[in-house]
Design a binder for these strands. Sequence first.
DNA 1: CGTATCCTGACC
DNA 2: GGTCAGGATACG
Length: 278
Amino acid sequence: MPELPEVEFAARTARELLEGRTIVALHVLHPALRRALDDGEAASLAGDVVIALARRGKHQMLQLASGRTLEVHFRMSGDWRAIGGEGELPPHARAVFALDDGRRLVLDDPRALATLTLHAAGSDPLSSLGPDATDAAFTPAGLAVQLAKRRGAIKPALLDQRVVAGVGNIYACEALWYARVHPATPCPRLDARALRAIVAGIRRALRRALARPGRVYGAEATPADRRLNVYGREGRPCRRCGTAITREVLAGRGTYFCPACQRRARRAPTPARRARHP
DNA sequence: CGTATCCTGACC
DNA sequence: GGTCAGGATACG
């Protein structure tokens, strides 16, 4: 489920429940969570107070009164469910925060890949994260700097959270469709115009998803949800030109694009790139 | 760089 | 039974 927009909506839910509340207990229900958070750490959360919940990229950071930070990452299928004291746990409950007002916040995660990580006071766990995709600090010029070190394809680069935080497989596909850039285009072949289009495409795809809560993909997305233009639309007509959408695997991820309106750049963008040719 | 891996469920 | 999945990381 979660890319930046879905995490943003989930974070709003969690914020409402958690902020200002004392954690009575954190119950860890799935053993995989213990790889990052041992039982002692989980127990140490009892009595701590959630001062604030901040989202950075796809990470949710719970700032605790003790000065520590509890990082929550949903990975592939995590989500929050809020229930009262009597409510039944959802079928894929993996962890439960019991709060001092009697309510509970449940980490619901079918694939059990989500992580909870406790960071000591004063540590800076997200220092390598790039600018938030929704932030004004994410600019074509900044993207150019990040991509200058890369020779590989643009789409895997957009999925690298050090380049830009919050872009996942769905919105990387969508953004490149808006930008009319082929996902396999080598980074060195992208000129300034293409980078501007990619940044604008990312913003546009995310803005569209952030405009309305709810899933954009999967069983819970209604057919009326036409928020996605290429992802999951293999064989269906491109909404711009009618050409059948193609699916290819790139860097191990399903990659959807229009083979007609997303072409690879034909030549290097700057003379410097070609300087070594005679 | 691509590939395997974590884990479970949905779908063919 | 096999394949695929919205993420990230360890590894060759």
